[in-house]
Structures are given as structure tokens and as C-alpha cells.
Amino acid sequence: MATRTWTKYPYFEEETSADVVIARMGTDIDPRLRQVMTAAITHLHAFVKEVRPNHKEWLAAIQFLTRTGHMSTDWRQEYILLSDTLGVTMLVDAINNSHGDGATENTILGPFYVENPPHYPNGTNICLDGKGEPLVVRGRVLDTDGNPIAGATIDAWQTNEDGFYDVQQKGVQPEMNLRGIFTTDADGRYWFRTVKPRFYPIPDDGPVGQLLAAMGRGPNRAAHIHFKVKAPGLEEVITHVFPPDCPYLETDAVFGVKETLIGDFRHVDDAAEAARLGFTNPYWALDWDFTLARAK
């Protein structure tokens, strides 16, 4: 008769369900995978025991995740959107980017970042469709000691006046509309021309949008300009800057707003300066410095 080797949790029972599943993991697996899966299984089983879904509800949850996967494409990642709207993306970012040293705060990258946008001279206007209220952005890149950083790159991108990124309107917007990289001069200064950002809804025609509506939440993101700022020897910063007059600062659909990232957007009435900038008068101006921490 064959000898059976008994484990502590050989059979499934509700009371010890998580322990039964965890005990089935092999002995020679990656330690970090063991740690992650142990926590995931423990919390998932605790969630199910707390909620106690019936079979119809659990099937609905599985179907929701299935639709989320089917909705994802090369340029629209519905699972990222789900992570964003549940606040998980911001939580992961906060865990990994807690400087505490005066550096500019991070926020989420977002799903519409595009690699290798045009690299422009300072002062270039990145608004290619001519829509929106003109805005000039000026500032410096500094380290946490206040020293200017020459040669830092500022990668900026935003939606157009209609509330869409160029990749959402291929064939409608000019390619690489409202995107560009700029490099700081010897004094750490940069500047470029664009348009005042406006709020916009995240894509809400899929399962994530349906979930938001069911929870009584809106899909709108607060108006913002995205920035990715980096320089050799310094920590990269991925962040937004928000205008203070946006009505969605406190209800941003992806929890991306931090108080330190609300900029002073000034409404300027100066016909001569507007003409020099190639703007209609009046226009908007934003002075914004980025502070980068030393690389760890």
C-alpha cells in the first residue's frame, strides 16, 4: 500500500481556505513571488468571505474583468484605467516616490504618453491645431539645494481644446499635437508655448466607465499638463501641473491632483508682449520650476 504524505491543509474548507491554497505552492519558487502570492491569496479570500457573493455576482465580476481585457488595445489599456480609477496607480506611485526632500511631487504617467516626441528649441509652440487659449510656460529645473540644472529635458504633453490627446484622434489632430521635449539652458531655464489645459473625461465607453457610473462617480480628469523631467545623476520626475480654476481638482477621476502641483496660471492683458509671443491678447502665463532629487 502506498504511503501518503499528509500536509497541514490537505483539503479545502471555508475556514482555512487561504491556508489550503497557499500550502499548495512549491518549496523551490522565487521568494518574492511567494510573498506576493501569499498576500494576494490571503486578502482575496478575506474579501470574498466579507462580501459573501452569490454565484451570479461572482460570475458578473469575472465577466467584468473579461470585458476589461477585451477592451484593451495597443493605445488604450483598460486595466491601467481600472488601476487609475481605483486609486491603486497613485498608491503605487506614492510608495515608490516618497522623496521628503523638497523635490517636485510625482503623479501618474497616464495611458497616453508617447515615446520620442519632437525635440524642440525653447520657445516653440507645441499647439499644432490652433485651438485653445494661448499659454506661455516658463521656469527652471533645480536640484534640492537650489542649484540650476543645465541640460535637463522637459517632456510635455496634454490634450487639445476638445479634450482629446492626438493618439485618440488619429487623422483628426496633427500628429504629435501638443507634445514636445525641451532642454534647459546654462541657467536651468526652459520655456515653451502651448494652450491652457482643460478638463476632459477618461474613456468611459467601456467597463471602467460603467463601473464609475454605478459607483456614482464622474469620469472627468482635472485639467493638467503632463511633464516628465530628467537629468543625469538626478531622480526623474513624472508629474502634472493643474490650473487652480478647474472645477474637478477635488474629484479627479484618477486621484492625480496634489496640492503642491496646482500652478499659478495668470491671465495677462499685454498686447505688446502677446504680439512678441505670437499670441492673441489676452493670454495665459505659467511660471513653474521643477526640483529634482539626487539619484539614489
Score class of each variant (00 low, 15 high):
residue 2 A to V: 14
residue 8 K to M: 03
residue 19 D to I: 08
residue 23 A to Q: 13
residue 27 T to Q: 15
residue 44 L to Y: 08
residue 45 H to W: 04
residue 47 F to M: 07
residue 47 F to I: 10
residue 55 H to I: 06
residue 55 H to P: 00
residue 56 K to F: 09
residue 56 K to A: 10
residue 57 E to H: 11
residue 62 I to H: 11
residue 64 F to M: 12
residue 73 T to M: 11
residue 75 W to R: 15
residue 78 E to V: 09
residue 81 L to Q: 14
residue 86 L to T: 15
residue 91 L to M: 10
residue 92 V to S: 14
residue 94 A to R: 11
residue 99 H to N: 08
residue 101 D to G: 06
residue 117 P to E: 13
residue 122 N to C: 01
residue 126 I to Y: 06
residue 128 L to W: 03
residue 129 D to R: 06
residue 130 G to M: 00
residue 136 V to Q: 03
residue 137 V to I: 15
residue 141 V to F: 07
residue 144 T to P: 00
residue 148 P to W: 01
residue 149 I to H: 07
residue 166 D to W: 08
residue 168 Q to P: 09
residue 169 Q to T: 15
residue 170 K to P: 05
residue 193 R to H: 09
residue 193 R to K: 15
residue 196 K to C: 03
residue 198 R to Y: 02
residue 200 Y to S: 14
residue 201 P to L: 08
residue 207 P to E: 08
residue 209 G to W: 00
residue 210 Q to H: 13
residue 212 L to W: 00
residue 213 A to L: 07
residue 217 R to E: 12
residue 221 R to H: 14
residue 222 A to N: 06
residue 223 A to F: 04
residue 225 I to N: 04
residue 227 F to N: 02
residue 228 K to Y: 04
residue 229 V to Q: 03
residue 235 E to Q: 10
residue 236 E to C: 11
residue 237 V to M: 04
residue 238 I to L: 02
residue 244 P to H: 06
residue 246 C to M: 06
residue 250 E to M: 04
residue 250 E to R: 12
residue 261 L to T: 01
residue 261 L to Q: 09
residue 263 G to Q: 10
residue 267 H to R: 04
residue 275 A to G: 01
residue 278 G to L: 05
residue 283 Y to K: 04
residue 288 W to E: 03
